[in-house]
């Protein structure tokens, strides 16, 4: 799916990440943890091609990202669902339109996917909020809507950056169970979080590997969490 070989990333003021190698196998479930500012978001951005590695090689779906054209990057992004930390909605469009946005921009017929969209919204418990604007949603509702948008294209990989950052514990558990459900449907999942409780809860439901970023390196965390 996604493979990093000796990847480094440099923001300009020294390396944030260096010599990182990782292979995301299909159907795997990873947690990415580490102190804030350690580079979790940067790592995910490298995976969904918002940032380009300053050295090393990133391969997405078997293709070297450095050799991809802009349109190819766009096409590959349609196969990766991303839940952004700050959700990233279009504020002037209602939630249903925001969730359906990936369909729209990829040129799919959104009216044909109407039933799909409805199912998806009820799966994340937002069927009553379809016509609300993003600003009218609570933090948890936004995160769930972001998750719905991430999976509407039925992507092979779902990357989530602190999906439970602004929500209470009940909501976190609910979001996590949605992600576990997606993994059971065969999706590759990677979640960046600093919430160790969340990781512990998830480990009881799914066979997850925990990666930790510290000192610019990616390490496999022990089973003792």
């Amino acid at each position: 799916m996604i493979e990093l070989q000796n990847v480094a990333y440099n923001y300009g003021g020294g390396e944030l990440l260096s010599d990182i190698s990782l292979k995301l196998a299909p159907g795997s479930f990873h947690f990415l943890t580490g102190p804030s500012g350690a580079g979790k978001s940067t790592f995910l951005k490298l995976c969904y091609m918002e940032l380009m590695a300053t050295s090393g090689r990133v391969q997405v779906f078997g293709r070297d990202v450095a050799t991809m054209g802009r349109d190819e990057i766009a096409r590959n992004r349609q196969r990766i669902g991303v839940v952004h930390q700050d959700c990233r909605f279009l504020d002037h469009l209602p939630i249903a339109a925001n969730v359906a946005l990936p369909l729209r921009v990829s040129g799919r017929d959104t009216s044909a996917e109407e039933a799909n969209l409805k199912d998806l919204l009820s799966w994340v418990g937002l069927e009553d909020r379809a016509d609300a604007l993003p600003a009218e949603l609570s933090g948890g509702e936004k995160q769930r809507a972001a998750l719905a948008r991430a999976v509407i294209m039925s992507p092979d990989v779902v990357l989530a950056d602190e999906p439970t950052g602004n929500v209470d514990w009940e909501m976190s558990k609910r979001l996590m169970s949605l992600l576990v459900e997606l993994n059971k449907m065969g999706k590759t999942i990677m979640i960046a979080t600093h919430d160790l409780n969340l990781i512990r809860t998830a480990k009881s439901q799914v066979n997850a590997r925990v990666l930790r970023i510290s000192n610019r390196q990616l390490q496999l965390a022990g089973a003792d969490l």
């Binding site: 969904y48 918002e50 802009r70 349109d71 766009a74 096409r75 590959n76 992004r77 349609q78 991303v82 952004h84 990233r88 909605f89 279009l90 946005l101 990936p102 921009v105 990829s106 040129g107 948008r149 294209m153």
Partner: peptide
């Protein structure tokens, strides 16, 4: 902001 969101959800430049 709109443009970067569109780009992130996989919109082509032409779109």
């Amino acid at each position: 902001q709109v443009i970067s969101v569109l780009r992130l959800v996989g919109a082509h430049d032409a779109y």
